[in-house]
Design a protein around this nucleic acid. Structure first.
Length: 425
DNA sequence: TCTGGGGTCCTAGGACCC
DNA sequence: TCTGGGGTCCTAGGACCC
């Protein structure tokens, strides 16, 4: 049996690069991209990283710095990034039989059945660069966790030309590399875990690799045990099938400004439910639970804090926006208390089942087929005419909740009115 | 003034059953 | 009169990821 081989392909500075692809005048300038609602910095171009602007920093603490250093600040444009991501995935799928899209800018590949992995890595990198103008790093290893670590090395050490294959390296070299980086660089080791690990002397990636997996299981659980085994070349994490239906679907947003009244919050919930229900129907699912979450701003310590979640079970699983909406509104009514300065509301659909294998309740009527026809009509119209063309009136009640997107770039690749224009002289 | 959103998996603990 | 213990299901919460 051939040795297993996985690759992780990861776009460099993905959001910032997407912005640069369509605005060549930004090519050499530092660019940062903000989270929804223009809150934090979630992506930085290489130039912005060189200025030591940290990931996740609130922009209001850095705006003056950015102005001083002529940093371009962009609101996030997920329509553009999503489309660029799909193009990258297309290139990978053309060249590899087994691809798992892990996040908007990363994919795992199973290379076990292929040869010349390092060369393939360079070819993938060239093809993506050529077809999307996005530069990727490629890491290759015997397990997903090792591929992830190899990808990290590919980015940290430019010497390798963007492709690093751990399978080519002798064991001593691998251990040498691992002893040079802190344990929190391992995929699956976050802030809390690394603090605990550090306290018992596990400081580097190598320390974790050499830890006793049984002991790790007892102290930290089965997830970290798998990580230790993966670092030692035993594959415990398989490729996930692409397009697996979600088990829960969320839609939530912070408000553009603090809200105290119920009406605009109802509007936001209405908007979120419509979006979540559309996603639910896209995966041909039915939900039986609706959660509503409402909270104040935890960063405003001077404000009285409040956060509550409520679960509304439905008698029958459904994907009908109107049923889900009624449940969510009832939930919101339960948890809304006047007198707080609210910051965010969200909904989540849970207990999701496949509409194709729905079980009928002995005492209730089957779902009216006219309902689902109406919903799919709404979805079709919105798909062709643009999101939100046909929507529920309750969404319009009060738009005081809408988020800020002060400096979003055009949706160059998905919206006719916003196509880039080429000027010929 | 201004601090994201959307997901997964695991575990602990309570309820319930036999 | 004696009042156990193991299995399963569910939920909330915590950790992680990007």
């Amino acid at each position: 049996m051939p040795r297993q081989a996985f690759a992780l392909v990861d776009a460099n500075n993905f959001y910032a690069t997407c912005e640069k692809v369509f605005q060549p005048e930004l090519a050499t300038r530092p660019v940062v991209v903000l989270s929804n609602n223009d809150g934090c910095i979630v992506a930085r171009s290489a130039e912005a990283k060189a200025l030591q602007i940290p990931m996740g920093a609130p922009i209001h603490e850095w705006r003056e710095f950015c102005d001083r250093h002529d940093v371009v600040i962009k609101s996030s444009n997920y329509t553009l990034y999503g489309d660029m991501s799909a193009r990258m995935l297309g290139v990978l799928q053309d060249m590899c039989p087994e691809v798992e899209s892990y996040s908007i800018d990363e994919s795992f590949l199973n290379l076990t059945s292929l040869r010349d992995h390092t060369q393939l890595g360079f070819e993938l990198r060239r093809a993506i660069r050529c077809r999307t103008h996005i530069t990727c790093g490629v890491g290759i290893g015997q397990t997903k966790t090792l591929a992830k670590f190899a990808n990290f090395i590919a980015k940290k050490q430019p010497f390798w030309g963007g492709v690093f294959n751990l399978l080519d390296q002798p064991a001593e070299m691998m251990d040498g590399l691992m002893s040079g980086y802190p344990v929190d660089e391992v995929w699956g080791v976050g802030r809390r875990l690394s603090k605990r690990l550090n306290e018992e002397g596990i400081l580097t990636v190598l320390d974790l690799k050499q830890a006793d997996p049984d002991r790790i299981r007892v102290r930290y659980g089965v997830v970290l045990e798998k990580t230790v085994r993966e670092l030692n070349g035993l594959s415990c994490l398989s490729m996930e099938e692409v397009g697996r239906p979600k088990q829960q679907i969320m839609a939530s947003r912070s408000f553009g400004a603090t809200l105290t009244e119920l009406l605009p919050i109802r509007s936001a919930v209405s908007h979120h439910i419509a979006r979540a229900a559309e996603k639910l129907r896209q995966q041909n699912g039915l939900a039986q639970h609706v959660y509503v979450m409402l909270r104040t701003n935890p960063f405003r310590e001077q404000d009285l804090q409040y956060r509550r979640t409520t679960l509304i079970p439905l008698a029958m699983p459904t994907s009908d926006t109107r049923v889900l909406m009624a449940a969510a509104m009832a939930g919101l009514k339960d948890i809304y208390v006047p007198g707080f300065r609210y910051h965010k509301v969200g909904v989540m659909l849970g207990q999701i089942t496949d509409a194709g294998v729905q079980q009928q309740d002995l005492f209730s009527q089957p779902d009216d087929p006219r309902r689902s026809r109406l919903m799919s009509l709404v979805d079709q119209i919105n798909q062709v005419q643009g999101r939100g063309t046909l929507h529920f009136a309750s969404t319009d009640l009060d738009d005081g909740w809408q988020m800020r997107t002060g400096s979003r770039s055009p949706r160059y690749t998905t919206c006719w009115e916003e196509l880039p224009v080429a000027l010929c002289c």
